[in-house]
Amino acid sequence: MKKWVCIYLLGLATLAGAESPQRLLIVSDTWPPYVTGNPVRPGFDVEAATQVLQSMGYDVTFKLVPWKRAMKMVEKGLADGLLDASPNEERSRTFYIPQEPMSYSVSTLFCQSCDTSRPITNELLKGKRLIVNRGYNYVGTLEEDPDIEQLPVDSFEQGFAALNAGRADYYIVNRYVGLHALKQLGIDGVKVMQGHVAEPSPVYLLFSRQPRLMSLPTSFSKALSDFKKSSEYQEILRKYGLVDE
């Protein structure tokens, strides 16, 4: 009798374990409006990633940490996913990268005394000072040009404060992020260029290279692609005043 009771209890425990959702810890740094840190409006990529993973049966926890630490956490397996990262060769060796991007980043220049209609070229910035964010993987050649002096900063607040104070001529930032930051900071004297630095570049939810997550990028890509066709996704974009790119 005791033997059958033990088997029954073991079966219940196994069933309960099978029904319990697998937990995922997703990390990123603030990158509003993609990632905001606001519990009511956490960011449109945070909301999209959370809804997709929950629909796949995962219990998702999102945590804000500085960008470099976030990358290290996922690299070491202390977190499961890194939200809104641009791909490169090193990251393709370090993380699992889904085929479907979360969204796209459109980088442009912000300035004070400038003609916003001028084309954005290396020639425009020669002899100028360009603000860049440390640890960011930019698309294009502006930040690699030795004739363009760089002023590295650790946050968008620092970057726009430096630009507003006249410590630099231009600031390379994602268009949506820059406009959101200016609104939050209450800065009126900074303008945004009409053009963009390069073609829109995709950003992804990168996954830690843990054996248990090996198949997740493929299934997540399919679920995310389907979700982008839904009314729920369009509602998220409308909530943040964005359009589907």
Rank of each mutant, 00 (worst) to 15 (best):
K2E: 00
K2L: 05
K3N: 10
W4L: 13
C6T: 14
Y8V: 15
G11N: 09
A13W: 13
T14C: 13
L15I: 03
G17H: 07
A18Q: 07
E19L: 14
S20N: 09
P21V: 15
P21C: 15
P21M: 15
R23D: 11
L24P: 08
I26W: 06
V27M: 11
V27A: 11
V27Y: 09
D29N: 10
D29Y: 07
T30C: 03
P32W: 05
V35W: 06
G37V: 14
G37H: 11
P39R: 04
P39W: 02
P39S: 04
R41K: 15
R41Q: 14
R41A: 15
P42I: 13
G43W: 05
F44G: 00
A49Y: 02
V52S: 07
G57D: 02
Y58D: 04
D59E: 15
V60E: 11
L64T: 05
V65L: 09
R69H: 02
A70H: 04
M71N: 07
K72W: 02
E75H: 06
K76N: 10
D84E: 03
A85Y: 06
E89R: 06
P98S: 04
P98W: 01
P101Q: 01
S103P: 01
S107Y: 14
T108K: 05
L109I: 09
Q112S: 13
Q112I: 09
C114A: 10
P119N: 14
T121D: 09
G127R: 02
R129I: 12
R129F: 00
V132W: 03
V132P: 07
R134S: 13
G135T: 09
Y136V: 03
I148S: 01
Q150W: 01
Q150A: 03
P152E: 10
D154V: 11
F156I: 02
E157A: 11
G159I: 12
A161T: 13
A161R: 14
A162F: 15
A162V: 12
N164Y: 08
G166R: 01
R167K: 06
D169I: 12
Y171P: 13
V173Q: 14
N174M: 04
N174E: 08
N174H: 09
R175T: 03
Y176S: 08
Y176P: 00
L179M: 05
K183W: 08
I187W: 07
D188M: 11
V192D: 02
G195K: 12
E199L: 14
P200F: 06
P200S: 05
P200M: 06
P202W: 13
P202D: 13
P202K: 10
L205Q: 00
L206A: 09
L206E: 00
S208L: 03
R212P: 06
L213Q: 07
M214H: 08
S215G: 06
L216T: 02
P217L: 00
S221E: 03
K222W: 02
A223N: 02
L224W: 00
K228N: 04
K229I: 07
E235R: 15
I236G: 02
L237K: 04
L237S: 04
R238S: 09
Y240L: 06
G241Y: 12
G241R: 08
L242F: 10
D244E: 14
E245C: 07
